[in-house]
Simulated scan of single mutants.
Amino acid sequence: MPLTFRKSFRIFPGVRLNLNKRSWSVTTGGKRGPRHTTSSTGRRTTSVDLPGPFGWRRTRSTRHTR
């Protein structure tokens, strides 16, 4: 079983810095309303918790050109 690393730090109320083995990301938003996450790899995610066990998430990826 592979080992994983993930750590999240609260910077300000409603702002979190997330670290993992390959990248970092910043998440803004709280428990109510949408959350927006921007990753160092170019991935942008918007997510919303819905009533009950439901939720909605949209992920956009920015392709890097060399």
Results as ranks from 00 to 15, higher is better:
Ser23Lys: 10
Arg43Gly: 00
Thr4Phe: 12
Thr4Asn: 03
Ser47Asp: 10
Leu3Asn: 07
Trp56Leu: 12
Asn20Glu: 09
Phe9Leu: 15
Pro2Glu: 08
Ser23Trp: 04
Phe5Tyr: 15
Ile11Lys: 07
Val48Thr: 08
Leu50Tyr: 03
Gly42Val: 14
Lys21Glu: 13
Ser39Leu: 07
Val48Asn: 01
Gly29Met: 03
Thr28Gln: 03
Ser40Gln: 12
Ser8Glu: 15
Gly52Phe: 05
Val48His: 04
Ser47Gln: 14
Trp56Ala: 07
Pro13Thr: 08
Val15Ala: 10
Arg22Ile: 11
Ser23Tyr: 07
Ser39Arg: 14
Pro13Cys: 03
Lys21His: 08
Arg44Lys: 15
Gly52Cys: 04
Pro2Cys: 05
Leu3Thr: 12
Pro51Ile: 05
Pro13Arg: 15
Thr38Leu: 09
Leu19Pro: 00
Pro51Tyr: 08
Thr37Ile: 10
Thr46Lys: 13
Asp49Val: 12
Arg44Gly: 00
Phe54Gly: 01
Arg16Thr: 10
Ser47Trp: 08
Arg10Ser: 09
Arg32Glu: 02
Leu19Ala: 04
Ile11Arg: 08
Trp24Lys: 01
Thr28Arg: 08
Thr46Val: 15
Thr46Tyr: 07
Phe9Pro: 00
Pro2Asn: 09
Pro2Gln: 12
Thr38Lys: 13
Pro51His: 05
Ser39Met: 12
Leu17Asn: 01
Thr4Met: 03
Gly29Gln: 01
Pro34Cys: 02
Arg10Lys: 14
Arg44Ile: 14
Pro53Arg: 10
Phe12Arg: 11
Gly33Val: 11
Phe12Leu: 14
Gly42Glu: 08
Leu3Tyr: 11
Thr45His: 00
Val26Leu: 13
Val48Tyr: 05
Leu3His: 11
Thr38Gln: 04
Arg43Leu: 13
